[in-house]
């Protein structure tokens, strides 16, 4: 089986296929942006996008996402390191404190904005509800998503 991760196609061995997606990403590809916070699907620090939809990678085996396209936080900025406007908005809005929830938060927000480029604050709350943040009270995360929305609208 194959998997596309951040635009690169990967061949999956039988052993890899049995792994949790989070472990495959962190251990085999050294993509450590996705974090392990609970392993029961409650915190969202392990969130990645599978075909543009947020998935808690602690809950999925690699073989459950066969042939899909995966986006991790490492794949969001441009090749030359220029930040994606959503990442920049997270910085500008002060949405980053300890940063442990940040990769997951950015990715769920990215998925939201891809499908709904003009969300209300209530819609943003609903979209990030599955991701915990202990530092920010979510207020500035929601600000950041709002700030970045105009960019998606333009596309």
């Amino acid at each position: 089986m194959k998997l596309t991760v951040n635009g690169i196609q990967r061949d999956i061995t039988r052993a890899q296929a049995e792994k949790r997606l989070i472990d495959y990403l962190r251990e085999d590809l050294d993509l450590t942006g996705a974090k392990i916070g609970c392993e029961v699907g409650a915190c969202g620090t392990c969130t990645v996008l599978v075909n543009d939809r947020p998935v808690k990678s602690c809950l999925k085996r690699v073989n459950e996402v066969a042939d899909a396209s995966i986006l991790t936080i490492e794949g969001l900025a441009a090749q030359d390191g220029t930040l994606h406007p959503l990442q920049q908005a997270f910085i500008d809005a002060g949405a980053v404190q300890c940063g442990f929830c940040t990769p997951g938060m950015i990715l769920v927000a990215h998925a939201l904005l891809l499908s709904n480029p003009a969300p209300t604050r209530a819609e943003i709350r609903r979209a990030i509800h599955g991701n915990l943040c202990r530092c920010t009270g979510y207020q500035q995360i929601i600000d950041a998503v709002e700030m970045a929305a105009s960019f998606y609208g333009k596309k």
Partner: peptide
């Protein structure tokens, strides 16, 4: 006005290495 922090770039790109990311 803006939320500059010295570690923000690393944190929003997933490059920040927390303890469990070390090998």
């Amino acid at each position: 006005e803006k939320g500059w922090r010295n570690d923000a770039y690393a944190k929003v790109t997933g490059k920040a290495k927390y303890s469990d990311d070390l090998k």
